[in-house]
Design a protein around this nucleic acid. Structure first.
Length: 540
RNA sequence: GCCCUGGUAGUGUAGUGGCCUAUCAUGAAGCCCUGUCGAGGCUUCGACACGGAUUCGAAUUCCGUCCAGGGCGCCA
């Protein structure tokens, strides 16, 4: 009889039976049975795999680039098969729910127009009209809105999106969104739909009811308490504003910051969680870390013998120290960290510090899933340096103020977050052309640019576009969080690496001169990057 | 564009100036054993990413490059 090596495709005929008593192998899932073989055929012999695939070897995985190069083998691992099954079932349940609510799955173009807004796009040269290019969509935004104009009323799509920006562990150049759009809805309608959708998926995946509605947190509160627009509320460590409390303290640094309109806030590391485990050296490390997070520094106070002590308490009167103690709910042994600076950058830096503290102190409940809606978002962000207006979400969000020059303009937009990650964002859209024009102009787009990039869209809105809105959920992120994966690459069958390349098929690739000529393209690149040749391909 | 971490047989690792003709496991090839299949025994094969510098001597120190990952910028 021939030896059948591992990973080969084989055809076995025989009878399954229990093994002789005393020979069962409990270590093996099939250790209780055996097959009495009547015939065996080797359909296709496998070469020796370049790395171990057996389930017992999991946890001893090779470097990721080896896994990517042989992704078809990596995907044979039980863990990867289960991930693909999970993803498939997740999408199936999502479609099942949306179909039951009369949503239509409609495909939108992959070859589309570049609107040269937002993220860098990928472009595709046209052979028929050399010198012109399609763009791959960053999202189906304009198309789904035009489907609403077209009275499609309820649309969804499992949509591939493309953005030519640098990768992160949760960002790939191409990724999948569950894209949803509806006409004649308000924000709550959209949120209710998504809650029901996720609850339906939850029931199907886990057999459990998901608690709805999700909690809602205002943008400002999220920033001021958690230092993030995607707060992880599974643990405490909330910031408390001390700006009012310390406004008269003759501490130079605070005074300067507050005169410039900045804030002072503190977080209490309770002694039972952290306070007395963090020594003076640790505090110095956190000060260093705070500076890396864009904070000017980090002030600390420790509650000892009933009073707050630190290197700067000499600038504070006992009354103010008591007020801080009171406000921060500081008790014996607690450690307070104080941050100060401009509102946005300081809270953002504080949020990074909060996350770091929670990780170091190991107080994040890893098995918990906490959904939330981030609501009451602004319409615009103003660049502190240039003073330029930028969309908080995107330029198609419906402003909540009629007057775009009001001191604060809210946007009819919101995010859905899970465990400190942004899963997706939704909004009501502008449906009147003149309002859309007004927003474009507020964002500093010239008439010429508006006409060139969005003329067709403004035109579409002018044919009685109904009020509409929608949302898009990042499927890769969602699934990776649910499965506890460190990177979305682990939930994508064929992902790209950090340099946006596929090690498996060797893309992106140079094309031959004839192809370039046909497209009338010349390249200025001198770089001669080549993927490492394998021995096999050299032999060919 | 910038910062950080890493790169030792097919794979995972040990090894911080001479004890390295480099450890262990797994793998591959061959043989032995036969209630084996994720068992056991024996033999063999196979690596310091690349280039330069320091040194009597470099896997080990330094510089540069390449590759991979994490982050900043960027991601409307």
């Amino acid at each position: 009889m021939k030896t059948f090596n591992r990973e080969s495709a084989v055809l076995i005929n025989g009878t399954v039976r229990n093994r002789v008593e005393g020979t069962a192998d409990g270590r093996n899932p099939t250790g209780d049975i055996e097959v009495l073989i009547t015939s065996a055929e080797l359909l296709n012999k496998s070469k020796a795999p370049p790395f171990e695939l057996g389930d017992q070897k999991e946890g001893v995985l090779p470097n990721e680039d080896i896994r990517m190069k042989y992704r078809y083998l990596d995907l044979r691992r039980t863990e990867m098969i289960q991930t693909m099954e999970f993803r498939s079932k997740f999408l199936h349940l999502s479609r099942q729910y949306l179909e039951s609510k009369n949503f239509l799955e409609i495909e939108t173009p992959i070859l589309a127009r570049s609107t040269s807004e937002g993220a860098r796009g990928f472009i595709v040269p046209s052979r028929v009209r050399p010198g012109t290019f399609y763009a791959l969509p960053q999202s189906p935004q304009l198309f789904k809105q035009m489907l609403m104009v077209a009275s499609m009323d309820r649309y969804y799509q499992v949509a591939r999106c493309f953005r030519d920006e640098d990768s992160r562990k949760d960002r790939q150049p191409e990724f999948t969104q569950l894209d949803v759009e509806m006409s004649f809805v308000d924000m709550k309608d959209i949120q209710d739909t998504i809650e029901e959708l996720i609850a339906h998926v939850w029931k199907g995946m886990y057999g459990k009811e998901l608690k709805t509605p999700f909690i809602r947190v205002a943008y400002r509160e999220a920033m001021e308490k958690y230092g993030s627009d995607k707060p992880d509320m599974r643990y405490g460590l909330q910031f408390v504003s001390l700006t009012e409390t310390v406004k008269d303290v003759p501490y130079d640094i605070f005074q300067r910051i507050m005169k410039a309109g900045g804030i002072v806030a503190g977080v209490n590391l309770k002694s039972d969680v952290a306070g007395d485990k963090i020594g003076r050296n640790d505090v110095d490390r956190y000060i260093h870390y705070a500076k890396k997070c864009g904070l000017g520094g980090l002030t600390w106070m420790r509650c000892k013998d009933g009073v707050l002590e630190s290197n700067i308490t000499k600038y504070f009167t006992p009354e103010i120290l008591d007020a801080i103690k009171d406000k921060m709910d500081a008790e014996e042994g607690d450690l307070l960290f104080l941050i100060a600076g401009p509102w946005k950058s300081t809270y953002e830096g504080g949020g990074l510090l909060r996350k770091k503290l929670a990780e170091d102190l190991d107080i994040i409940p890893r098995d918990e899933f906490q959904f939330l809606w981030l609501v009451d978002c602004p319409m615009f962000e103003i660049d502190p340096v240039s003073g330029k207006y930028d969309s908080f979400h995107h330029p198609f969000v419906l402003p909540l103020n009629e007057d775009l020059n009001a001191p604060y303009v809210g946007g009819a937009c919101f995010d859905i977050c899970l465990n400190g990650n942004e899963l997706g964002s939704g909004s009501l859209r502008i449906n009147r052309p003149e309002k859309q024009l007004e927003v474009f102009k507020k964002l500093g787009l010239s008439d010429e640019k508006i006409e060139r990039n969005f003329g067709f869209f403004i035109e579409a809105l002018s044919y009685g576009a109904p009020p509409h809105g929608g949302i898009a959920l990042g499927i890769d992120r969602f699934i990776s969080i649910l499965l506890g994966k460190d990177t979305i690459r682990d939930v994508i069958a064929f992902p790209k690496n950090k340099k946006a390349a596929s090690v498996l098929d060797g893309s992106p690739q140079k094309v031959d001169d004839e192809t370039l000529e046909e497209l009338q393209i010349i390249t200025l690149a001198t770089d001669d990057f080549q993927f490492e040749e394998t021995e096999d391909s050299e032999e060919q």
